[in-house]
Design a protein around this nucleic acid. Structure first.
Length: 669
DNA sequence: TTAGGGTTAG
């Protein structure tokens, strides 16, 4: 016993060598409301009068209860700790903040929110003044349970808030999925500043996620530099991520380039940024640099690098990465990325195999497969998989339905498509968006129901965009409806004034009708806007090298041999009945382009090179930046038949699998 | 003694 301020102070220490001394030295066994003046926040003692034996006995009993509570907290025995907490609540006695914080962490780890709420009630009992640090623990617990309203209520109730309290709330709102909630993070930042609390690197790295305006992002970046926090690695990776989301890769690269001590996450941020912006080349180069810098690829790196392979259609490199993925064989996100890579590189044997072995599948796994099959023209299989998804009890989302409608349009299943479109709200609670309408326009247009397609566009609940009108234009192309094509093309240009291909297509339509004034008008508009058509480019991967072929370009080291091979192929194909298709009225090819270079379209050169460089029977896989023209499409069908090998050509819209004289797109693209 | 950054389908 010790003497202090005229009272006997009983030190309660039990023999527990495994518990840190600091833990015990900070114990506060506090008296109830009958003696509030004697409460202490960190002395490791409780007070008891000397003259009253009953009171002394009660104090000893209280000490025992608290001691038990602390013991259970430390051992992580949640049920017993909660029982002891009940007892403390009845006696109106309290332990030190540290014990509660330990228990709150246990509740968060064990998903025991009701216990967490009991602790919350307990520390707000009369006679106890919880420290800010303890309330921050509770705040964090509600945030971890995604109970933002409860976190906000506690935050509002807090008598004092420090930078951690504010940052916890800002971080919670910034991580929310809805933009209005994310805007609340920015509002809180302003309130925090008004409250005189300075944001630190934790605050900035959190709030950056909520930046939905580029101007605001720039302002926050300036503030970060002003207060000297730009060197923090968390802040930098958040900046890289947000600039990447805005497609501002030069700014992201600038932030990355200024760093001296880069960690794994920063590398992942910049690689992921390029991958998400469909800029696969720099993503792969940065990946190589990361490896050279001594970092190993983790799940996030591999997912982004797979995405880069997907955008570049690099099947062989994707297969190499698959070997590294094996050590994370149950990682759902990584498996989904792998599925998508194989789907988009046209290798369904591999995607099927992975999909069937995946233990966990989510809506993205199913949607990836359904969409992959649909885009590649395997509509029946896509619809069968959608039925299997219903059995699996995974609920479809708007992208799944998009895949289903895409599949219906490619198989000409008008009634099925209508059924899914009409019932998507009722069956799945999903409102049709622009993309769903676009699929329906595609479906009706493909079936030759152009009037119905136009009617649907006019009935849309949302404003049609260039994609909607392009779907109608595609149908006009197939069904040779030039008037409607001209109308659709004008609508596309209205929404996307830089679409050079559509200007050229419109000009060709007018030329066919000898409408010279309108041709001049279109050409002047192109000149005025400085619109130029991107040259056609095709890529093919051979022996781990990517070979690029550009229309009219002769820089490939084997170009003479390739052109010779191509001429021989054409000669043989002509014997099979191939007639070059020079009808370019409903294509976005210019007349001189057709006359001079029909023979040397980039995909034809890539196919000829594939025949030369790949072993017999191996699938020729080509990626193209523009849509394939009708002549190259016929050429590929006949070549696949003549060579008895598969040819896969991926254009920006869809995929063409050529086999035995047929294409999976059913000659509609 | 509490708060922060990177990965998947259209």
């Amino acid at each position: 016993m010790m003497r202090g301020r005229g009272r006997v102070v009983v030190v309660v220490v039990r023999e527990r060598p495994c518990i840190p001394l600091r833990f015990f030295s900070s114990l506060a066994l506090l008296a109830g409301p009958s003696s509030p003046s004697r409460r202490s926040s960190g002395g490791g003692y409780y007070d008891a009068p000397t003259t009253n034996c009953n009171a002394s006995s009660a104090a000893a009993e209280n000490a025992k209860v608290i001691d038990n509570f602390i013991d259970h907290c430390y051992r992580g025995d949640l049920p017993r700790a909660m029982k002891a907490l009940d007892s403390m609540q009845q006696r109106n006695i309290f332990a030190h903040s540290l014990a509660y914080s330990h228990l709150i962490s246990c509740c968060a780890a064990r998903h025991a929110i009701e216990h967490g709420r009991s602790i919350h009630r307990h520390v707000f009992s009369p006679g106890y003044r919880p420290k800010t640090f303890l309330l921050n623990h509770l705040l964090n617990m509600y945030v971890k349970f995604r109970l933002l309203p409860e976190a906000q209520a506690l935050f509002d109730q807090m008598p004092r808030r420090n930078v951690i309290s504010w940052t916890t709330m800002i971080s919670a709102y910034a991580a929310a999925s809805s933009p209005p909630l994310q805007r609340r993070a920015l509002d809180l930042l302003i309130l925090m500043l008004r409250d005189g609390v300075c944001p630190n690197m934790f605050t900035f790295s959190s709030v950056l996620r909520a930046c939905h305006e580029l101007q605001l992002l720039t302002q926050i970046h300036c503030s970060i530099i002003k207060v000297g926090l730009e060197s923090d690695v968390y802040v930098r990776s958040a900046l890289i991520d947000v600039y990447s989301r805005w497609g501002e890769m030069s700014s992201a690269l600038c932030v990355f380039g200024e760093m001296v001590t880069r960690d794994q996450v920063v590398w992942n941020s910049i690689i992921g940024g390029f991958a998400q912006n469909s800029d696969g080349d720099p993503a792969l180069h940065l990946y190589i640099r990361m490896k050279r810098a001594g970092f190993q690829a983790d799940q996030s790196t591999l997912t982004s690098v797979l995405r880069a392979c997907t955008s570049l259609a690099l099947l062989e490199l994707g297969r190499q990465l698959h070997v590294h993925v094996l050590k994370y064989d149950q990682d759902l996100i990584l498996n989904n990325a792998l599925l998508d890579m194989y789907c988009k590189c046209g290798s369904f044997k591999d995607s099927d195999s992975i999909f069937s072995r995946m233990v966990d599948k989510d809506v993205i796994s199913w949607s990836t497969m359904i969409m992959g099959l649909a885009q590649n023209g395997f509509s029946r299989r896509a619809l069968e998989l959608f039925k299997a998804m219903a059995v699996s009890k995974i609920k479809p989302n708007h992208i799944t339905i998009l895949g289903v409608l895409f599949a219906c349009s490619h198989a000409g299943l008008v009634d099925d498509g209508r059924y899914y479109f009409r019932s998507m709200k009722k069956l799945y609670g999903i409102d049709p968006g622009r993309e769903h309408y676009g699929c329906m326009v595609d479906l009706l247009g493909r079936a030759g129901r152009l009037d119905e397609a136009v009617e649907l566009i006019h009935k849309m609940e949302c404003e049609p965009d260039a994609v909607t009108w392009r779907a109608l234009l595609g149908a006009c192309r197939v069904h040779r409806n030039m008037d409607l094509a001209a109308y659709a093309a004008k609508q596309i240009i209205k929404h996307d004034p830089d679409d050079a291909g559509t200007y050229i297509l419109l000009s060709n339509i007018y030329a066919n009708s000898q409408r010279w004034d309108e041709i001049t008008e279109v050409r002047n508009a192109m000149r005025h806007k400085g619109v130029k058509k991107e040259p056609g480019c095709s890529w093919i991967e051979v022996n781990k090298c990517v070979h690029a072929f550009i229309l009219g370009d002769k820089s490939h080291p084997q170009i003479i041999a390739i052109r010779r091979e191509l001429k021989q192929i054409i000669h043989r194909l002509k014997e099979m009945g191939y007639v070059p298709d020079a009808n370019f009225v409903l294509q976005d090819l210019e007349e001189e382009q057709m006359e001079d270079s029909l023979l040397y379209h980039s995909e034809k050169l890539a196919m000829a090179f594939g025949i030369m460089a790949l072993s017999s029977g191996k699938t020729i896989r080509i990626r193209k930046n523009l849509r394939i023209c009708g002549d190259c499409h016929d050429f590929a069908k006949l070549l696949a038949k003549m060579e008895s090998r598969s040819i896969v050509i991926r254009d920006p819209i869809r995929y063409h699998h050529f086999e035995d004289g047929h294409c999976s797109c059913g000659d509609y693209w």
